[in-house]
Design a protein around this nucleic acid. Structure first.
Lengths: 334, 334
DNA sequence: GTGAAAGCGCTAACAT
DNA sequence: ATGTTAGCGCTTTCAC
């Protein structure tokens, strides 16, 4: 930062022999500049490689044309969502910035709040919160939540039909003759995890299978967290014959644990995941899972957010996308 | 943005009955504030949920404690690198922001330049450029490149031993008895791609195997781009018995193309990738590949950048990390 | 110990 | 058509 500090609008103005206001007009294509001056200023801009400071512009304008996405961590789910968001942003005139909390779950809530507050109204025109832990966001800028926290919230929200998805997964295992079906649950603070558990319970109950609470464990959507409960589940004397894992990452972790314990999937153990992340096709065996249209969720989130920012009222502010079962090779009849 | 705009420092000052200067001192823990006032202001800050605007602070301070990472797209390589960067940033006092060009390769160069210029000196204290297309960056803020563009550049750089890695991969195939070995090359503008091609050629030549130029194709590190050349390669009458793909993503794409054409991997075709991204373990069959310590690369990039920002001189500004062959099941003796 | 005022880079009224 | 001026939210001398 010592040498040749940024080129500012003043440098350009001085070099072109005009006032800063004129340079500003040129940059923003405003009327009131002669073709002559315009060309001269433009030339200087190119020569000096000047670019307006995003920060200064933001401060002045209160409009940045930047949308922020806050994710807890960069894993397959959020990355996939990011791709969808990237797709949707193209052509809108907005740009995308990602803030990652980097998986430090400790000061999660604080991080989200803080960032939202520091950014909104200045650096970003609006934000998408992915698996947020906050529900009561009340800032100037519009916010859309994806796969939100439990509890009442009037944030615009995108999620998928978790309840039905979980039922489909459990019913699939029941149809295959399984009765001892374990649940490796998700992050308990998220609505999606609760609904997936609820769907699991409902499907079992509907089939007249009592829920064995020892078979209900928490994997927190995290492969590392999942290893321990998976190992306990699978090394128990009356181990389950099937596992419904609340997301693909923990399902894949469970496959690995099974292999390590000498259990073959699907011969000795059936496993169903949730999400249908790209990795699920590539696992060995390829994973039976519940598809969530993750990219589409990211797209919708951006679309709604953009409408909100533009002051339009989106037709719907709570979108629940359909889930469906994708049968691959990690499940088999008992 | 209509209701209850941001809480500003002025609101806090008014509510606490002090001047903005005093509030600023409280926020920044400066001396010259009585314990009394400090407590009162702090209370108001909490009550109002005030957070200083990052933008305004940046504009004023020229120090943001934010590091930017610019990636061309969010795919496994960059995502993995991001994780390493996230690891390294913890405890440094810096925060991480990711800017993604979103895969639009058209205005790549422009995008990088523009962003770098708009951000540096204001929004970020420094930046990491991942697979950048620019070489001659000359802004105020320090910049570190990962897997850089070809051509001379005095940017601090992190890469891995691409030449040796490619030789290892090719020699592995030669050792297995393969002679018709194709190369599915990377992004020709990147040094890494050129070195991987060079390693491939050198290994063949050293083994006395002439290079068949029809077997040298471009996959651009991109699975979608790779499909066409892979299909051509594999459906040719004198098709290769092995393919060295310049990254795992195109190697996996090649596996899929092979399957589609009825070729079994590794029985009918051996495939080696490069990178060792997490997905490579999960592919069917698991991929033989050259490991690049991607996360470590991200870590080093951040470490060097942080030193640069702090005005220290890093002991080394060009780090090349070792690569090694990881043999899995996508290769077999001819 | 506290506040007034200047200024970071930029834009938008409002002169001229 | 161009320049002057005020001010976005904040920090930092420098008076008081």
């Amino acid at each position: 930062m010592q040498p040749s500090s940024r080129v500012t609008i003043r440098d350009v103005a001085a070099a072109a022999g005009v006032s800063v206001a004129t340079v500003s007009k040129v940059i923003n294509q405003r009327y009131g500049v002669s073709a002559d001056t315009f060309a001269r200023v433009q030339a200087v801009i190119n020569e000096l490689g000047y670019e307006a400071s995003l920060v200064a512009q933001s401060l002045r304008n209160h409009r940045t044309n930047v949308i922020g996405i806050l994710v807890a961590d960069l894993e397959p789910f959020s990355t996939e969502l990011l791709k969808g968001a990237g797709d949707a942003i193209r052509g809108t005139g907005f740009e995308l910035v990602v803030y990652s909390a980097g998986g430090r779950t400790s000061d999660h809530v604080g991080w989200e709040r803080r960032y939202l507050s520091r950014l909104s109204g200045t650096l970003v025109d609006g934000a998408v919160l992915v698996t947020p832990t906050v529900v009561d966001v009340q800032y100037g800028a519009p916010v859309v939540a994806v796969d939100p926290h439990t509890g009442p919230s009037d944030l615009p929200t995108i999620d998928s039909d978790n309840l039905r998805g979980a039922r489909l997964a459990t019913e699939h295992l029941l149809d295959l003759g399984h009765r001892r079906i374990a649940l490796l649950g998700g992050r308990p603070d998220l609505q999606s995890a609760q609904l997936r558990e609820q769907g699991y319970r409902e499907a079992l109950t509907a089939a007249g299978v009592p829920v064995d609470e020892r078979l209900v464990q928490v994997g927190a959507y995290d492969p590392e967290v999942s290893v321990k409960p998976a190992r306990e589940l699978l090394s128990s004397p009356d181990r389950p014959t099937a596992v419904f894992a609340a997301n693909d990452l923990s399902a894949i972790a469970t496959i690995e644990v099974a292999r390590e314990l000498g259990l073959r999937v699907p011969q000795d153990l059936s496993i169903v995941g949730f999400d249908n992340i790209p990795e699920s096709v590539l696992s060995t065996p390829p994973l039976t899972t519940v598809e969530q249209p993750i990219r589409t969720m990211g797209q919708h989130a951006i679309e709604i957010l953009v409408q909100l920012i533009r002051g339009e009222s989106p037709p719907r502010t709570h979108i629940t996308l359909a889930t469906r079962l994708v049968v691959r090779q990690s499940t088999r009849a008992l």
